[in-house]
Amino acid sequence: MPNSPSDEPRRIKVQRQGPLLVEGPVEVELEDGTIVTSDRFRVAVCTCRRSRRYPWCDTSHRDRAKDR
């Protein structure tokens, strides 16, 4: 079917601070070749590399103290 959502490019939202946001489900191939999947409606992919659930965001990118 033309113009079905699956034919459209998948949009990824990037932020200066915070995860990449991509419509799920998503497969991520890790450096060692392992494939991990997430079937959430939207998936937050860690970019700060601090997540304890890498590659998924666990909010570890947050500042530890407020900028004053």
Binding site: K13, R42, A44, W56
Partner: peptide, 14 residues
């Protein structure tokens, strides 16, 4: 809730 709410937070804010 660790993973789910990391996503929900983004959706709710944006």
């Amino acid at each position: 809730h660790v993973e789910a709410d990391a996503v929900h937070e983004q959706v709710v804010r944006h």
